[in-house]
Amino acid sequence: KTVHVDGVEYRFNNPEEADKFVKRLVKEKNGNVEVRGDTYHVE
């Protein structure tokens, strides 16, 4: 899984860790998540 945040790319081998990371980011930023294939885009 890959997570894109503000143009920075984070790669996770463990999908659960990627999910936790995304949830935390969305809370912090009050942002939205767009999923494209295996990539999460957080804005």
Score class of each variant (00 low, 15 high):
V35H: 04
D19R: 08
R24E: 14
E17Q: 03
V3A: 00
N32Y: 13
V33E: 07
E34H: 11
E28Q: 06
E16Q: 07
V22G: 04
V26C: 15
Y40C: 08
T2C: 13
P15L: 10
V33D: 04
Y40V: 12
R36E: 09
D19G: 02
Y40A: 09
E17N: 01
G7E: 01
D6N: 15
R24S: 13
K27P: 03
K29V: 12
G31A: 14
E28N: 07
L25S: 03
K23G: 07
N32K: 15
N30S: 09
N13C: 13
R11A: 07
F21L: 02
D19L: 15
V8T: 05
G7D: 04
P15C: 15
H4F: 15
V33K: 04
D38G: 05
E43Q: 12
R24W: 15
H41D: 10
Y10G: 01
H4C: 15
G7Q: 01
E28G: 06
E16G: 04
R24Y: 14
Y10P: 00
V35D: 05
V35A: 05
R11I: 11
G31N: 08
V35R: 05
Y10E: 01
T2E: 02
D6W: 04
E28H: 07
K1I: 15
Y10D: 00
F21Y: 03
K29E: 09
G31P: 09
V26N: 10
Y40I: 15
R11T: 12
K20V: 09
N14H: 04
K1D: 02
G31R: 06
F12S: 01
L25E: 06
K1F: 15
K20S: 13
T39E: 12
K27A: 14
E17H: 02
E9H: 02
V26E: 13
D19N: 04
A18R: 04
R11G: 03
E43G: 10
D19M: 11
G37E: 10
T39S: 13
N30G: 14
E43K: 12
V42Q: 07
K29R: 09
N14Q: 03
K20D: 15
P15V: 10
V22T: 04
H4M: 15
E16M: 06
K23A: 13
K23F: 03
V22A: 04
V26H: 08
N13E: 14
V35W: 09
K27D: 13
R24V: 08
R24P: 04
G31I: 13
R11M: 06
T39A: 12
D6K: 03
E17A: 06
N30Q: 08
F12P: 01
K29C: 15
E34L: 12
K27T: 09
D38N: 10
E43Y: 15
V42D: 08
D19Q: 08
Y40T: 10
V42N: 09
V5A: 03
V3I: 09
E43P: 06
K27F: 09
E16Y: 05
R11H: 14
E43C: 15
V33Q: 04
A18P: 01
Y10A: 00
D19W: 15
V3Q: 00
N13M: 09
K23L: 11
H4T: 13
N13A: 12
K29W: 14
R11Y: 14
D6E: 03
K23P: 03
D6C: 12
E34M: 12
E17C: 13
N30K: 08
V5Y: 12
V33M: 04
D38E: 09
E16C: 13
V26K: 07
K20Y: 09
E17M: 03
E28Y: 10
F12W: 01
D6T: 00
V26R: 08
H4L: 14
R36C: 14
T39I: 11
R11V: 12
L25T: 04
K23H: 08
R24C: 15
V3T: 00
L25D: 04
Y10F: 06
E28M: 06
R36G: 08
T2R: 04
E43L: 14
L25W: 06
V35L: 11
N13Q: 09
V42Y: 07
K20F: 09
K20I: 11
E17Y: 00
G7V: 01
P15G: 06
R11P: 02
V35K: 08
K20P: 02
T39F: 07
E17P: 00
V26Q: 12
K27Y: 10
V8E: 03
G7A: 01
G37C: 12
E34F: 13
E17G: 00
H4K: 12
P15R: 10
A18G: 00
Y10V: 03
R24H: 12
E16V: 04
K1H: 13
E43M: 14
K20T: 12
L25Y: 08
D19F: 10
E16T: 05
R11C: 12
G31W: 14
T39N: 09
R36N: 10
K1R: 11
K29N: 13
A18I: 03
E34I: 15
R11F: 14
N32A: 09
F12V: 01
G37Y: 12
V5M: 02
K20C: 15
N13T: 11
V35F: 10
K23N: 11
N13R: 06
V8I: 09
V5C: 14
D38F: 02
L25H: 05
D38S: 03
D19K: 09
G37H: 10
E17K: 02
K23E: 14
V26S: 05
V26I: 13
V5I: 10
E28I: 06
V5N: 01
E17L: 01
Y40W: 11
N30M: 09
N32R: 15
T39L: 09
K1G: 04
R24T: 13
L25I: 12
V42T: 09
N30C: 15
A18M: 05
E34R: 06
K20Q: 13
A18W: 06
K29Q: 12
V42W: 09
G37P: 07
H41S: 09
L25M: 08
V8Y: 05
Y40K: 07
L25K: 05
Y10I: 06
T2K: 04
V42R: 05
G37T: 10
T39H: 13
F12N: 00
K23D: 14
H41T: 10
L25C: 02
K23I: 08
